[in-house]
Simulated assay, not measured.
Amino acid sequence: GATLQFFSDRQYRNPMVVRVAGYGYQKGFGGHFHNDNAVAALRDIPGIVVASPARPDDAAAMMHTCAAAARTAGAVCVYLEPIALYHTRDLYEDGDEQWLAAYPDPVKRAENHVPIGSARTYGDGTDLTIVTFGNGVRMSLRVARRLEKAHIAVRVVDMRWLAPLPVHDILREANATGRVLVVDETRTSGGVSEGVVAALVDDGFTGPLARVTSDDSFIPLGDAALEVLLSEDTIEAAAVKLVSR
């Protein structure tokens, strides 16, 4: 569908928005598709838009963006939803409800528009930039709170779009601190972080740069999943190591 306009010299198009419940960390599911973290095949399709909202307010706004792109430009958008965050209400502590958000006012839809390929930054820390997406956003924000107590000031960049990558926004936030940790819940090989690191290098970023990912593995059932999936402890350890360089 995403290649129809190209091969028909734009005589035909196949606009659509495909919602996919994905990524890991959802308890009670295992094996492929129900609880998986493979997105490389999607990012390899020319012309496709891959949206990956993490928070509920972005989820609504980005869905509107995808629908508008399909309607006006015939775009094919894949909308990846972190299934593990469907019922999440809290961010730092039980009962804080800081992961909730009101549905955007339809009258102010233009103001809440999320352009394709634009990231969202949390905080203005000057010690480290964490670039992430999906479940990594919540984990990274929680880690940033812990690092703050250790006097390490972090800004967290939610890419929001995996294709096209928000390269301009990533580079701006990377240069703001001079250090970048890419937090990628997908696999080490073929994961999203490979493209992010390559984009930073291609655009001349020369500061300390590292990435943390999940293992090159299927996601097993039950607690065994935690042996291969990225964790907050892994993120924190990598952040401390990077800042010490």
Rank of each mutant, 00 (worst) to 15 (best):
G28M: 00
V49Q: 12
K27N: 03
D44M: 13
A41M: 07
L80D: 08
A41N: 02
H34I: 02
A54L: 00
Y23S: 08
A59P: 03
F29H: 03
R19G: 11
C66E: 08
R71I: 01
T65S: 14
P82D: 01
V78K: 02
D96E: 14
R89L: 14
Y23Q: 08
V50T: 08
E81G: 06
A40H: 11
N37C: 12
P46I: 10
L80V: 15
V76F: 07
N35M: 14
G74E: 10
Q26H: 07
Y86E: 09
Y25N: 00
H32P: 15
S52D: 13
G47V: 02
H34K: 06
A73E: 15
V78M: 02
H64L: 15
G28R: 02
G30V: 05
A68K: 14
V50S: 02
S52V: 11
R71C: 06
M62V: 11
V20W: 00
G28V: 02
A69Y: 13
G95A: 08
G22N: 10
A21G: 11
A75D: 15
H34D: 06
C77K: 00
K27I: 08
A59N: 03
A41P: 00
G22I: 05
I83L: 04
Q26W: 03
V20T: 06
G22H: 09
N37Y: 07
N37F: 06
F29A: 07
T65E: 13
R89E: 15
K27G: 01
T88E: 14
D96A: 11
C66R: 05
E81W: 03
V20E: 06
N37M: 12
L91K: 09
D57R: 02
C77I: 04
P53W: 01
V50E: 07
R43Q: 06
L80K: 02
M63G: 11
R89S: 12
V18M: 07
A60T: 12
L42M: 11
F33W: 06
V18Q: 03
A69V: 10
G74C: 12
A69T: 07
M62Y: 05
R55D: 08
H34V: 06
C77M: 05
G22M: 14
H64E: 13
D57P: 00
A84W: 01
Y23R: 04
V78Y: 04
A73Y: 14
A84M: 00
D94T: 15
A38R: 10
D36H: 14
G24P: 01
A75R: 11
A75P: 05
R71E: 15
M63H: 10
D94Q: 12
M62T: 04
L85M: 15
A51M: 07
G74W: 08
G24H: 01
D96T: 14
S52W: 01
A59L: 13
V50L: 04
D94C: 05
C77N: 11
P82C: 03
A40I: 06
Y79D: 13
